[in-house]
Write a protein that binds this DNA or RNA. Structure first.
Length: 611
DNA sequence: TCTGCATGCAGC
DNA sequence: ACGCTGCATGCAGA
């Protein structure tokens, strides 16, 4: 393995510059160096004995300790850079956010307390890219908190010097105790424990995936761009094929000076040749017939490719043959992950051909088929809907059951049920779905009504939707005022329905996100139990590269899809693990309820070959 | 020149 | 009047 970035370095998110270097020395110490933007050592080296890690061990679970720490996103990248992987963790920041909001723990001290430093968002400050940050900064000071009363730090827990006095404070151990209490006293401690474990495991996975990166062949990418756009040109210059298309567009509308990148100019030009358009969106243009349409649609497609995933993108985001997006667990209200950097959530199918396994390795790509409908079936215990998806494509099963005529209709209707469609084809098909699957549809309707009333809804494992804000409440209140106008009432109704569609979707999307977290956590756990992964030590082997260079590991995750980079010889084993993990996740969430979570799994050399 | 907003489009 | 996103771009206003 030569094209992963060198073990022990953390590339800057923006430009690949190294700001921090940490490595494990021969005698078991962790050595942390801060480097400036030019790569010069910026301060004295910090040495830490390897047993003095932040967080503390709670005792043995299975044979692995669970580290309890404040914020995986700030800590774990540093450990990974030092060649250290952690098996289990409890992320206090992420878990606090869940418990603070969950309707299952509203009576807890944690939920009722005044806002503390645990409520202040620190999620979006990746330590690894901050210049000059070291482990020492993170654990020996209280750098992220301005509160003077926060005298206890995480370091108290490290050495076992923890004081009983911490219980009343806002330190790590006190917070952990509050979280345990909140869970224990809740109506669903089992579900919450699973959610917190899954969320925390997700945080570990997120850091590991960012560290490992997605294998990316810049030569393949470049060839693809050249084929589509023409040879590479300097930034600001239109590549050949785009320039040709621009010329054809100008000719077709008779405006030699037209800039096809300007929406207003384009609108005016289209109107002038008699096309009645209300926007310049591709789907609207597709309905029209005019010589300008074909070249314009082609232009838009290619211009998008160039600006979103062109050479500039490649130079910015691909470091040593790997794409390292930052994953942000819990970054979406529903519990889905967000990402930052390089648009990892929108990796177009167009460029997936550049995602290629290393020589001798394979990519195992798996996605959960019709995940959200299956989740809905299980959530509502709708056995008929679960039956429709048993061992088969769920939409096909709905057709087979005579509910609708085509797979496309089944899909549109289901999405409409989960998103709250009221009109169009989807709206028309809904009654038939409601007749066939009354329990499932009742659940989505109930969630929508709750949202319209301003109430929160809760996912399978206990993540609750936020309550609407002041502005929302004020708008609703105004509609009940004696002097309310029709416009006031309309606005209030419309806003209430908006929130209802949000809560309707929240419960399904959020529960699906929980399933996906459990799935991925199981995949990770089993991958790490493979002989090849466990062989030797759990530590990186110095210059020979990290564990990520030798053993199968997760490299990508997208809502209902995971990708594992694996030595070719282990691909079959990895497939089995991924399938087994899906079943396990289903049982974790829904026990014995008979619902299948089918996967599409492909072992490929290139991401483009998957589905 | 900088910033916030609207548009458009990529993903699930 | 169909949910959740991230990001590039152009444009208007500061």
């Amino acid at each position: 393995m030569t094209d992963a970035f060198p073990a022990g370095t953390v590339p800057n998110r923006q430009n690949g510059q190294v700001h921090l270097l940490a490595s494990r020395t021969g005698n078991g110490e962790i050595l942390v160096l801060s480097l400036d933007a030019e790569g010069n050592v910026a301060g004295p080296a910090l040495r830490l004995p390897s047993h003095e890690f932040p967080g503390y061990v709670l005792g043995q679970e299975r044979d692995r300790p669970r580290w309890v720490w404040e914020d995986t996103a700030r800590i774990y990248p540093l450990l990974l850079a030092a060649g250290i992987r952690v098996h289990r963790a409890h992320d206090l920041r992420l878990c606090h956010a869940i418990l603070r909001q969950s309707s299952l723990t509203q009576a807890s001290a944690l939920a009722r307390a005044e806002p503390s430093r645990w409520d202040r968002a620190v999620a979006f400050e990746p330590a690894a890219s901050a210049s000059g940050v070291t482990l020492f900064d993170l654990f020996d000071s209280d750098g992220d908190s301005a509160a003077g009363s926060d005298t206890e730090t995480a370091a108290d827990g490290v050495t076992g010097r923890d004081a009983g006095s911490a219980a009343a404070g806002f330190g790590t151990q006190a917070e952990y105790r509050r979280q345990l209490d909140a869970v224990r006293a809740s109506a669903e401690p089992g579900r919450l424990r699973l959610l917190l474990a899954a969320e925390s495991a997700g945080a570990l996975i997120a850091a590991e995936m960012q560290f490992a990166g997605l294998p990316w062949r810049t030569d393949v990418h470049d060839a693809l761009l050249t084929r589509e756009l023409g040879p590479r040109v300097a930034p600001g210059i239109r590549p050949e094929r785009l320039e040709n298309l621009a010329r054809r567009i100008r000719d077709a509308v008779g405006e030699p000076g037209l800039n096809p990148d300007s929406q207003p100019d384009l609108m005016r030009a289209l109107q002038k040749v008699g096309l009645k358009v209300t926007s310049t969106r591709a789907w609207e243009l597709k309905e029209l017939t005019h010589p300008v349409i074909d070249p314009l649609l082609e232009y838009k497609k290619l211009a998008r490719l160039l600006s979103a995933n062109g050479w500039y993108w490649m130079d910015t985001w691909i470091v040593d043959g790997r794409f390292h997006p930052e994953y942000i667990p819990g970054g979406v209200v529903t519990g889905r992950w967000a990402t930052r950097g390089g648009g990892a959530l929108q990796l177009p199918k167009q460029v997936r051909g550049a995602v290629v396994a290393d020589a001798g390795w394979k990519l195992v790509v798996a996605d959960a088929a019709q995940l959200e409908p299956r989740i809905l079936a299980a959530l509502s215990a709708d056995t008929a809907m679960a039956q429709a998806g048993r061992g088969t494509d769920l939409y096909a099963g709905i057709v087979a059951g005579g509910v609708v005529e085509t797979r496309d209709h089944a899909k549109v209707a289901m999405l409409g049920a989960m998103y709250g469609a009221t009109s169009g084809e989807s709206g028309r098909l809904l009654p038939r779905l409601a007749k066939a699957f009354p329990r499932a549809l009742a659940l989505t309707e109930t969630a929508a009504r709750a949202g319209e009333r301003g109430e929160s809804v809760t996912t399978r494992l206990g993540r609750s939707s936020p309550r609407p804000g002041e502005r929302w409440l004020a708008t609703q209140a105004k509609a009940y005022d004696p002097g309310a106008t029709d416009a006031d009432e309309r606005r209030a109704r419309s806003q209430a329905r908006d929130w209802g569609r949000f809560t309707r979707n929240f419960i399904v999307q959020g529960s699906a996100a929980e399933w996906a977290l459990c799935w991925m956590a199981e995949v990770r756990r089993e991958l790490r139990m493979l002989p090849q992964g466990a062989q030797g030590s759990q530590w990186a082997q110095g210059a020979s590269g990290s564990e990520f260079d030798r053993a199968p590991h997760l490299v990508f995750f997208l809502h209902d899809e995971v990708m594992v980079h694996t030595p070719a010889a282990l691909a079959d084993t990895v497939e089995e693990i991924i399938r087994r993990a899906a079943d396990t996740a289903g049982r974790h969430l829904f026990g014995d309820f008979p619902v299948d979570f089918l996967l599409t799994v492909a072992t490929v050399d290139s991401y483009a070959q998957a589905k």
